[in-house]
Amino acid sequence: MSAGLTARRLVLGLLGCALVLAVAVGVSLLLGSVRVDPAEVWAALRDPSRRPGNLHYTIVIGQRLPRVLLGLLVGGGLGLCGASFQALLRNPLADPYTLGVASGSALGASLALAAKWSLQVGPFGGVQVAALLGGLAVTAVIWRIGVVRREFRVESLLLGGVTVALVTSSAIIVIRTLADPHFLVTLDRWLLGSLAAALPRDSWSLLPFLLVGGLPLLALGPAFNQLALGEELAHGRGINAGRVQVWTFLAASLVTAGTVSVAGPIGFVGLIVPHAVRSIWGPDHRLLLPGSALVAGGFLLLCDTLARTVVAPTEMPVGVVTAVIGGPVFLLLLWRRR
């Protein structure tokens, strides 16, 4: 029989995805608004303690490396959550923001920026904490709407998510109207999504979310495959569909809120990467989930490299680049599916 995922296909597929990520990491470290010789990049990476005073050393170790680390974690989280939300809602057009998590985070961040909230909790800054709380608050609201007696109501969830997004964007407009014009620039940068302010501590603060929420999602591949044919059939195969759905919703919302809190809402990554991985390696979630995480990490890094270099010495928010590249690619995928 030709079809089906074998160990060999799984390993080859993951190697292919890892290669995409590896190339993207290399490109991101080598390219930037300042030209650094590849040999110098390599030397800096090999011995980070050698020449702390050197400018190129500072660029590679102090700026590019933390940004690459954050980019691959944020991208990986978005790819994994995108594939998970698509499996959960049984809809390839879903993305990590479909259920309103990002809107909640955006509202939280806007409030914190407008109030000039300068709280610091461990590695978390005030805006980050507010974004996280906003995202989790929306998750709680959507939970109340869409989870009835531990049963999952997909239609209620979708409608709830769309409504929450509309309400929060109106609230953000109210904040913008009342706020000091000075702060609008900062707010817009945040709302478009950016890795520009990446510090090593951002990656550290995202890591717990990926470990607590992301690792369990990776293990759900076989269950997601069964759920593609409906809860009833999955139940007959020995899967507690309600429990899988509820935990997926919570875990994916947590990871999404985490990524948005450190990088803002970066669009399209969680939507098109699972699509692309599915169209190359097939719909099996055992490969799709880790594959989407790897490729999305790479995709975000490549987009971020463009964001840093195309209009150098200034730079664009990476969310603009992902939208400009992701939008047409997505339309092309839809076109091919006709």
Binding site: R90, L233, G236
Partner: peptide, 28 residues
């Protein structure tokens, strides 16, 4: 599930799984 196979009335189809994959899923 190892004792009882259950074919419900309503089954969905998402994500373009092949027939071979769908039958293999029965092995879960």
């Amino acid at each position: 599930a190892r004792l009882v196979g259950y074919l419900p009335q309503e089954v969905r189809a998402a994500f373009g799984f092949s027939v071979g994959e769908v039958v293999l899923m029965g092995r879960y």
